[in-house]
Design a binder for these strands. Structure first.
Lengths: 208, 208
DNA sequence: GAAAAAGATTGAACGAGTTCATTTTTTAAG
DNA sequence: CTTAAAAAATGAACTCGTTCAATCTTTTTC
């Protein structure tokens, strides 16, 4: 029997993640007790710790799944972007933001981001940081694509611009998660207001 | 006797903050036990909790002091900035970064930033966020000042530019704190590489 | 197929942050 | 000065994340 162990392992990993995500969403990260997660996943507390290093790691695993999906959606947009700088940026970023609250609540995001900052050397925090880097690379690729198609001026430093756009949208997302009352639409509007004037500056087609 | 209580209160607040900062620096945030902080400050654990809501609040209080000093230094630069966009930005940001590691270690910063993200509704996290807003406002004011002096093009949206510069320098500082091996000089160089091309775009004096 | 080795599971015990009923100190009133 | 009321200090007890020695299960060996 090639892998009863492997099968059980995969099954338990999934059950723990499902139980944790359910409880994190229902009761909030802090209120969801490890003991309860273990019980719902039908494993002991000790076993849970064989699968995840600590409570935070379980959350960051969910985030990693989430960001992976966002990256896939983003790739489609970058492959064939609107041929207008501001609009292309808006489309990509909207994709990121709209997906963000589908699996995770603001509170879960806050916790995940806090963990990845506070303990950057755990494996899953590294993974989080790596995914962040891929998102940044995707924004840079968008600027490069637009430049290749003559929409962005040739002289523009695509890497610098992409990094700055990304850091801005990322920081704005953090602010968004910090304010429970803030709606997605407000976030999008504010980021767009920041990016539009810069987009105009680097755009080949000047609107006078 | 107008205020034995008030005097004792001020004294204890200070003693707790001093003890905590000492121990955070010496042993790291996590390893510094509340019991030890209380002992060094010559109060009981319960009393410590009368003065600060939790362990994190003590740290965030230190950060608040730190940022206040940075703001003062920045105000002097904004009042009389170098008349060159890239250089003015570099000078202000260098001031921020150089001051940042004077009182706080990278680990302390990481913890403080994590707390302000994770529990944004505690009084001291609010204070932190407010100070962040003041820093952002200062960067905006720099752009406005440069614009008023004819160094930045008249049509540029100073608020949008300032916000984006600030969010970028802030995000880059987070990355800096996440990587223990990264030196201040590398951080400055990378941020400068990002800002310089944008500075050139909005500058009145075009270098061809 | 039995026994040994390797791999996983378990839950009681531990540690550190936090709480709260009780006690002590300070202030105000008579 | 005495006493009552208000404010603050205290530390033992509690909670919850985490660990680890003992136990059980699966795989491998012969």
């Amino acid at each position: 029997m090639a892998g009863l162990r492997a099968k059980q392992k995969a099954d338990r990993t999934r059950r723990i993640l499902e139980a944790a995500t359910t409880l994190f969403r229902r009761e909030g990260y802090d209120s969801a007790r490890i003991e309860d997660i273990a019980e719902m996943a039908e494993v002991s507390v000790g076993t849970l710790y064989n699968y995840y290093q600590n409570k935070g790691d379980i959350l960051v695993a969910t985030v990693a799944m989430e960001v992976t999906e966002v990256l896939e959606g983003g790739a489609r947009i970058v492959a064939n972007p609107p041929l207008n700088v501001a609009e292309a940026l808006r489309t990509l970023i909207e994709q990121y933001y709209d997906h963000s609250l589908y699996y995770l609540s603001k509170e879960m995001w806050r916790t995940a981001m806090a963990i990845s900052i506070q303990q950057p050397d755990t494996p899953l925090s590294r993974r989080y940081t790596e995914l962040d880097g891929q998102l940044c690379a995707q924004v840079i690729r968008l600027v490069e694509t637009l430049q290749a198609r003559g929409v962005v001026q040739a002289g523009v430093d695509a890497r610098a611009m992409g990094e700055v756009f990304f850091n801005n949208l990322n920081m704005m997302f953090i602010e968004f998660c910090k304010v429970d009352a803030m709606a997605l639409e407000e976030l999008k509007a504010r980021v767009n207001a920041q990016h539009e004037p810069i987009a105009a500056l680097i755009s080949s087609i000047k609107i006078v």
